[in-house]
């Protein structure tokens, strides 16, 4: 639906029209309009593009980098392992939202900064998962056999160990997407990350929250429901991937 947003909706997601301000849900505007006269359904559809893209764009680099680092850490051990573990623990010790607010305030709340920040925050979880998978496997028979066959460390890591990390890492990936989506929405709600009047669910909830007091519940309710549905969807996807990779 996000991909088909321009086809599905006749409205401009950033089209200001004062004559259409705060219209309740109707056949003309299925989910009503907001304080700028923008069609909420249209903005939710276009917002899905931004939110899902942000979620994927921040979780995907973390998946690749974190899984590789975690597997290398578990396989090689020694000082590299110690160093990586301490680094991830330090990163995880920061309260995420406060850390994100501080970084975005310092570097500027641009979209690219937000993606990079979320990617960095997401890395430790993959490091931990991959390491926990690889650690018991490094002295497994198939690894010893590979060593006997003359394969070097990187080859063993890439061909024999990393594939074993895929199942839990992919299951974590969709959970991570949901989590990133919540963080993006939360930061937008606080006024960081996405600029007005871009369609973004968290920002829409924030802008609509002013109207709850005066009875225009639809302005924040529907974007809020979009976040709930997306997060639930990611969690179902995670369960599916976990089962699929196990049986596969």
């Amino acid at each position: 639906m996000a991909l088909l947003a321009p086809v599905l909706s006749p409205y401009d997601p950033e089209g200001v029209d004062a004559s259409r301000r705060l219209l309740p849900p109707s056949f003309r505007h299925l989910l009503g309009t907001d304080g700028f006269g923008m069609d909420i359904a249209t903005r939710i559809l276009f917002g899905a593009r931004k939110d899902l893209l942000l979620a994927f764009a921040s979780a995907a680099p973390a998946l690749v980098v974190g899984t590789f680092l975690g597997a290398a850490s578990g396989f090689l051990g020694g000082r590299l392992d110690d160093l990586l573990q301490r680094a991830t623990e330090v990163l995880q010790a920061f309260p995420v939202v406060l850390f994100a607010m501080a970084v975005l305030t310092a570097l500027g709340d641009r979209l690219l900064n937000l993606i990079l920040l979320l990617a960095v925050i997401n890395v430790p979880v993959y490091v931990k998962i991959a390491r926990s998978v690889v650690l018991p496997l490094r002295s497994a028979e198939f690894v010893e056999a590979a060593r006997s066959a003359g394969q070097h460390g990187l080859g063993i890591l890439a061909r024999h160990l990393l594939p074993n990390t895929m199942s839990p890492a992919l299951a974590q990936f969709s959970i991570n997407c949901a989590w990133s989506l919540q963080i993006v929405s939360g930061l937008s709600f606080l006024g960081l990350g996405v600029e007005i009047p871009e369609p973004e669910w968290g920002l829409m909830v924030q802008q609509g929250s002013h109207y709850l007091v005066t009875g225009q519940w639809w302005v924040s309710f529907f974007p809020g429901m979009a976040i709930v549905c997306a997060v639930y969807g990611f969690q179902r996807l995670s369960a599916f991937l976990r089962d699929w990779t196990k049986t596969g």
Partner: peptide, 20 residues
């Protein structure tokens, strides 16, 4: 905030593209 969004829309009609 409300004013900025309305001003942005008005500037766009005069071919001035503003990022808030």
């Amino acid at each position: 905030e409300t004013l900025a969004v309305f001003v942005r829309a008005a500037l766009a009609r005069a071919n001035i593209r503003a990022r808030i």
